[in-house]
Nucleic acid binder design. Structure first.
Length: 577
RNA sequence: GGGCCGCUAGCUCAAUGGCAGAGCUGCGGACUUUUAAUCCGUAGGUUCAGGGUUCGAGUCCCUGGCGGCCCA
């Protein structure tokens, strides 16, 4: 079913699209509309950074649905300096601090040629899985090829005016050390710090130096780092002299020099002008006076003769319930991590259904089951044509794109919690899993695992990587001899009745009838008798006994499922048969 | 101290200035069934407070409160 641009959806995406189209018509009529994202591959590109991409992606997609030509560019800020060696990487990497990210060796064990490529690669695959079409622009390539030469020379010529603009916005003291936000736990604080790091914001060297203001910073020809200071510049000859902390000093002709970059606060506005960006969001840390977003406005207007894009500030994306194993490594989850357990449309949906300025949290814990349930319910409502307008809009944006059409789905979307529960007891054993799935709905049996993939695999990865061991079902290795020995005659009889009926009732429905029937028979009732309150108590006690003997706890997955998964032989053994 | 954002049902959130709505939870019920399965029904509101604009305000304006965040 094609996704059509029919309705006049009035969600946040649509409203931005209205605005962007109108603005693009005014600024550059007839040209493709440019939406932009900027990502710094200085470390794992996490789910907060994904908002930097999803926001313009959704807007661009809406613009495309309306028949306009649009391009979504992703600027890889891989020519930014390597700032610090992250925890877990050999401290010898500190010698690379100050080099462009694309010149730093990849972390130990990586197969990628450098630091930036190592972190770009998983993001690029994740974006493909998410159906996000974009044009990637490596800032390393742009700078080292001289693409920005005219802009650099222009910025240098205008350095006094730039300095004056920056001066208007410079705050008195230097920023004090950043404090970790209050009220966050360790994981969230880590994510927050990483988010601030990634958004290219705040405490950035803006080019002020003793010898005057220069908006250009060369990477040292000798050591490759940016520990350089420009000491002189001549507008006529474009001769630029610099010294480096390593002791190297030289004079180059900037008109031929391709190893350096504009300082961030000038670099960003320059690119708005260069690419003609009409829409580019940024993190909430840009909302303060003096941020690069704020000072970028007068710089792009007064220096580069263009306008600042329309740019919503997007709020924090939090993570809930990452398994301890993952979070203790200090790892903030990436889009690739999320796609290990979520279908792509589901992940898109999280970003589509919230306005950018709303913060939200992505659940890796039990909440994910509810998320899947909500998604399935919404899909059903959409199919029946009874979804609310706002919900329908979010659904359509999540389910597919204008160019790629609908994203792949699981043909038979069984509830995630059911799949997880089954895989929990089968520990992923394919034959057992299929047998249980087949018995789930005898009217329309599942005939192959392919029908329930990829959701089946996602559920398996979730249960094995995110669910704590104490919440998993672990079938006992040995019979609980003490408990078996302490059982009264009535309990022993109940087990005998169950075991006696096992073979004859070996199916999901059969076992269901059997486990509910045993207490009835014991009470002198027929197996199809209506339950009484007393009987229900007896049933619950019987179930608790079975759970304790089978999995060592008084509750667990539904018994028929559990029995099927455990297998008749093992059941007999554990129940003392 | 300056700034940004938010405040709507128990929770998470919708609603061009035009009858305040969903989902989850709760409660009730069905399926031989109080499981970590499924389905149906139902309740739920001083839209943070006060003032203003308007025929009409959750929505726009002002003041205040509370919360989150950024900067100092």
């Amino acid at each position: 079913m094609p996704i059509v641009a029919t309705s006049v959806e009035t969600d946040w995406v649509s409203r931005f699209a209205d605005e962007v189209i109108a603005e693009a018509e005014r600024r550059a009529p007839g040209k493709p509309i440019v939406c932009a994202s900027g990502l710094s591959p200085s470390g794992p590109i996490h789910l907060g950074n994904l908002r930097e991409v999803m926001t313009p992606h959704l807007v661009a997609d809406e613009i495309r649905r309306r028949g306009h030509e649009v391009v979504h560019i992703i600027s890889w800020d891989d020519y930014d300096r390597f700032r610090k060696v992250p925890a877990g990487v050999d401290s010898s990497w500190s010698e690379h601090i100050g080099k462009p990210l694309s010149s730093v060796p990849a972390p130990p064990g990586s197969t990628y040629p450098n630091w930036a490529e190592h972190f770009k690669a998983p993001m690029i695959s994740a974006l493909a899985a998410l159906g996000i079409e974009f044009r990637g622009i490596s800032q390393t390539e742009m700078y080292t090829s001289g693409a920005y030469r005219a802009q650099i020379l222009h910025a240098m010529r205008e350095r006094a005016r730039i300095d004056a603009i920056l001066d208007r916005h410079r705050t008195k003291g230097r920023a004090a050390g950043k404090k970790a936000p209050q009220g966050l736990d360790a994981v969230e604080a880590e994510a927050a710090a990483a988010a601030a790091e990634g958004s290219g914001a705040a405490s950035e060297d803006d080019g002020a130096a003793a010898a005057g203001y220069f908006p250009y910073k060369p990477y040292c020809a000798e050591c490759g780092r940016d520990l350089t200071t420009v000491t002189a510049y001549d507008d006529d000859t474009t001769e630029l002299s610099y010294t480096c902390a390593c002791g190297h000093a030289e004079t180059v002709r900037l008109a031929e020099h391709d190893r350096g970059k504009l300082v961030w606060k000038v670099d960003w506005p320059m690119r708005w002008a260069y690419e003609g960006v009409v829409f580019e969001p940024s993190g909430v840390d840009h909302q303060s006076p003096g941020s690069s977003w704020q000072v970028g406005e007068p710089i792009v207007r007064e220096i580069f003769g263009a306008e600042r894009p329309i740019g919503p500030m997007y709020a924090f994306v939090g993570i809930v319930g990452m398994a301890k194993m993952s979070s203790s490594k200090g790892a903030v989850p990436t889009a690739a991590d999320a796609l290990e357990i979520m279908e792509a449309p589901l992940l898109r949906w999280l970003y589509a259904r919230r306005r950018p300025n709303q913060s939200f949290k992505i659940a890796f814990d039990q909440e994910i089951q509810r998320l899947y349930d909500e998604w399935d319910t919404l899909a059903r409502k959409v199919a029946e044509g009874v979804a609310l307008p706002a919900d329908l809009a979010a659904y359509n944006r999540a389910a597919g794109t204008a160019t790629a059409g609908p994203l792949p789905v699981t043909p038979r979307p069984l509830p995630f919690r059911t799949l997880a529960s089954i895989l929990d007891v089968t520990t992923g054993h394919a034959e057992q899993t299929l047998r249980i799935l087949r018995d789930l709905d005898p009217e329309q049996p599942v005939t192959s695992l392919a029908e329930v993939r990829p959701r089946l695999d996602l559920a398996e990865r979730w249960i094995t990587t995110q669910v704590p061991a104490e919440q998993r079902t672990r079938v006992r290795e040995e019979p609980d001899a003490d408990l078996l020995a302490s059982l009264g005659e009535r309990e022993r009889e109940s087990l005998r009745l169950l075991l006696a009926g096992l073979d004859e009732h070996w199916s999901l429905d059969g076992l269901t009838a059997l486990v509910y029937g045993v207490p009835k028979v014991q009470a002198g009732l027929t197996p199809d008798a209506k339950p009484t309150p007393e009987l229900k108590v007896a049933q619950r006690e019987f179930f608790a006994l079975l759970y304790t003997l089978l999995v060592g706890r008084d509750t667990g997955p539904r018994l028929p499922t559990l029995l099927l998964a455990v297998g008749a032989g093992r059941v007999r053994e554990l129940l003392g048969g």
